[in-house]
């Protein structure tokens, strides 16, 4: 489904991805953890080419992302993304946020798109907020609309970039519930998050990154029992303590 081979990326002098090799099968749920600045978000953002890579190969659902003349819009239709800061379109209602891409990219008629948008908003638990603007939604509700918006394109993969970092405890739960549900339905998911509870329950593999490298890539069960690497062990003990 997704295959990184020796992928490198710099931001100026900063070498943010240093030889990433990673394969994700269809239906797998990966949680990527690691200290800030370790390249987790960048890794995620290369998958839909929000960040282009410099060397190595990256193939997503048969599309060669590393090739310059790859049609990025075709790629992005298959890859949904959820951001830390939600990034809902503030001038559109919740339903319109969900409808925008299907109507403009796929040319689905408005009426049909709205019906599907309402169904998706029901799925994420906020059908009653369809005609409300984002400014009047709580953070958790906004993030759930953002998930519905990404799902509206019927993606094959969902990327979550610290989806709960901007939320407080109460709202974290409602967003994680939606993500758990998605994982259960067999969606391929890559989640950058420090929600170890979610990782433990819903993920198949945990990937630990540090300084642009994947230090550890283990089945979830093993990771929590005995992380192999010292760095991962230290990190884990820090995160769990507070």
């Amino acid at each position: 489904m997704i295959e990184f081979r020796d992928v490198h990326k710099h931001f100026g002098l900063l070498h943010v991805l240093r030889g990433i090799t990673l394969a994700v099968r269809e239906g797998e749920v990966l949680v990527i953890i690691g200290p800030s600045g370790s390249g987790k978000s960048t890794l995620l953002r290369t998958i839909n080419r929000l960040e282009p890579i410099e060397s190595g190969t990256l193939v997503v659902d048969g599309i060669a992302v590393h090739e310059i003349n790859t049609d990025v819009n075709r790629l992005r239709k298959r890859v949904g993304m959820v951001f830390q800061s939600f990034n809902l379109f503030p001038h559109l209602t919740a339903a319109e946020n969900v409808m925008l891409a299907p109507t403009k990219v796929h040319g689905i008629p408005t009426k049909e798109a709205r019906e599907r948008a309402l169904a998706l908003l029901a799925k994420v638990g906020i059908p009653e907020k369809a005609d409300v603007h984002p400014a009047r939604l709580s953070g958790g509700q906004q993030q759930r609309v953002a998930i519905a918006r990404a799902l509206a394109m019927e993606p094959k993969v969902m990327l979550f970039d610290e989806p709960t970092s901007a939320l407080d405890a109460e709202m974290i739960r409602e967003v994680l519930d939606v993500m758990r549900q998605l994982a259960k339905e067999g969606m391929t998911m890559l989640v950058v998050s420090h929600e170890l509870g979610f990782a433990r329950e819903a993920s198949d593999r945990v990937v630990f990154m540090d300084e642009g490298r994947i230090i550890e890539d283990t089945p979830t069960a093993d990771f929590f029992v005995s992380p192999k690497e010292e760095r991962a062990r230290q990190f884990l003990s820090k995160v769990i303590r507070h």
């Binding site: 990025v72 992005r76 890859v79 990034n87 925008l100 403009k104 990219v105």
Partner: peptide
């Protein structure tokens, strides 16, 4: 905010869209 463009592009909308 740059996130607006990113979210839109990530959904598959082109630059003009």
């Amino acid at each position: 905010p740059r996130g607006q463009t990113e979210a839109s592009r990530a959904l598959g909308l082109s630059y003009p869209q």
